[in-house]
């Protein structure tokens, strides 16, 4: 079974994010890393391909400046190859444009299953995976916390407000997985060395038959009106616990009439 995992390479979330002053898009100039959320999808894909007794895991990613450092992390985990779409025309793309680009690249890989995180850590619109499924004309199961594949059918547990639904869907299909769904492996030294030699096919939008008017800032059809500091919350009383910290909390809750 061949699996595509959509992965995003993002600025390190440990550093404060920034927007460009002119277009108000996220600054992605420095080194990009594999979004933590995507490690779960990569791990899940590797396990499913293993369980199916064969097949390849292919990564599909869209990033500026031919960025591959995050892809190398996922290749080191065990993915076989990657398709990277990198094109200046893609700057300012929204979720819908991104989905069109990813779907076009996924078609080239002809997978049985596509896995994505439910949302990225930096942009977190949370619509791209299902938009990809709709562009492909495929069924999808979002917010999946458990997945197995047998006889061409995906069996997935999908998160609901009150518990979860068991869902079945025939391949080809897309699933978006929540964090914590599996324990991502750490790349081994051997894996890291092997990743350097794995193929990364770099494409431009023209290679995918897409037009510059459909993607990037031109395709986004939305604009940022303003960015302003939010009303700041003031810090209140800070006390060091000398064995009486709990009493301060009890007094605070009493004052609020919560207890």
């Amino acid at each position: 079974m061949n699996v595509v995992v959509c992965v995003k390479q993002i600025p390190d979330p440990a550093n404060p994010g920034k927007l460009t002053s002119d277009t108000h898009t996220i600054v992605r100039d420095g080194k990009l890393i594999l979004d933590d959320s995507d490690a779960y999808g990569v791990e899940m894909a590797l396990q499913l391909a293993d369980a199916a007794g064969g097949g390849e895991v292919t990564l599909v990613s869209m990033a500026p400046h031919g960025e591959t450092s995050g892809l190398r992390t996922a290749l080191a985990m065990g993915a076989a190859k990657a398709i990277l779409i990198s094109d200046d025309e893609l700057a300012g793309s929204d979720a819908l444009s991104t989905a069109k680009v990813l779907a076009a690249a996924i078609r080239r890989a002809e997978p049985d299953l596509v896995i994505a995180a439910t949302e990225s850590t930096d942009g977190y619109t949370g619509t791209t995976p299902v938009q990809v499924a709709e562009v492909l004309g495929w069924p999808s199961v979002s917010f999946v916390k458990k997945v197995a594949v047998a006889d061409g059918v995906v069996k997935a547990d999908r998160q609901t407000e009150t518990g979860y639904d068991s869902v079945e869907v025939p391949l080809p299909a897309l699933v978006s997985v929540t964090a914590g769904v599996v324990e991502p492996r750490y790349p081994s030294f051997k894996g890291i060395m092997a990743a350097k030699g794995k193929p990364v096919e770099e494409l431009r939008i023209g290679d995918l038959g897409l037009d510059a008017s459909q993607v990037g800032a031109a395709g986004a059809r939305q604009q940022v009106v303003s960015v302003e500091p939010a009303e700041a919350r003031k810090a209140g009383e800070i006390a060091v616990d000398d064995g009486d910290g709990h009493e301060k909390i009890v007094a605070f809750l009493e004052q609020l009439k919560v207890i």
Binding site: R233, I238, A239, D241, G243, G245, H246
Partner: peptide, 29 residues
């Protein structure tokens, strides 16, 4: 950690070990 960002928005901040504060708070309640 006294420097934890959460204290910048807390109305009441207790700088202490959750393993000490929480059991006492639970017992008190």
């Amino acid at each position: 950690d006294q420097e934890a960002p959460i204290f910048s928005i807390a109305d009441l901040g207790i700088v202490g070990d959750v393993h000490k504060v929480l059991p006492k708070l639970i017992e008190a309640l």
